[in-house]
Amino acid sequence: MLGDPIELESVTYAYGDGALRREVLRDVALRVAPGEIVILTGPSGSGKTTLLTLVGALRAAQAGSLRVLGQELAGAGEGVRVSLRQRIGFIFQSHNLLGFLTARQNVAMALELDGAIEERARLARAGEMMAAVGLAEHTEKLPGQLSGGQRQRVAVARALVHAPSLVLADEPTAALDRASGGEVVRLLRDLARSRGTAILLVTHDPRILDVADRIVMMEDGRVVSGSAASVLPAGAPAGLAAPGGAPRG
């Protein structure tokens, strides 16, 4: 690939028009290298979620340059954004699995967009991915029959099954208890590491900051600090997360 999975230059974004115009991103620059795990954190309203939706091609860009997986998103139409999304893995705050499909069918949904894969291969790959997230026994269960942590692991499998070069996650542990939250994030990290997948993760959760290669702080629509996670002392994550301690809006 030419360049990094994420290359943002002077990205600015505003909601509303005229007097109601409210800038949520101001001149943001961000790079994420292949295989790198970056946590984006900061207080509510700092613009991190908007940034994530822009990177994920879920929103049309307004100003600045956004290159994601080599695709320039500035001025890109709906069709370009839809096909870029197919190359990204998404993990949401809640699992958002389709309740009427089994866990494995949910995972296979991420593969149905690829015409080169046969149904049999789809289900086989989905099954392998289920095994990789430790749910080999639960492939035929409906999401309603799984625990919260298991569902989020299915969501991780769905985000990774089509071997995306980039995974975007938004508060993946928000709905989980400490143990299963940590498990899901470490699982995500290990899978991504083994395959060189870049991860951009938005979170408030201090318990998971240690999985990151780099932590990027945002405030008022600007990136205020980008530090390598390794320089933080072991006890630091809780303190670092203090500005974002308020519940997420």
Binding site: R87, L113, D114, A116, R125, E128, V133, S165, G196
Partner: peptide
């Protein structure tokens, strides 16, 4: 995660373009 080894069967991520969409 003993299952990690099974992932080798997957194509490596990298310079892949968007997948070819299935026919109509």
């Amino acid at each position: 995660m003993n299952a990690l080894t099974e992932l080798r069967v997957l194509p490596p991520p990298g310079t892949r373009e968007a997948p070819k969409p299935p026919g109509l």
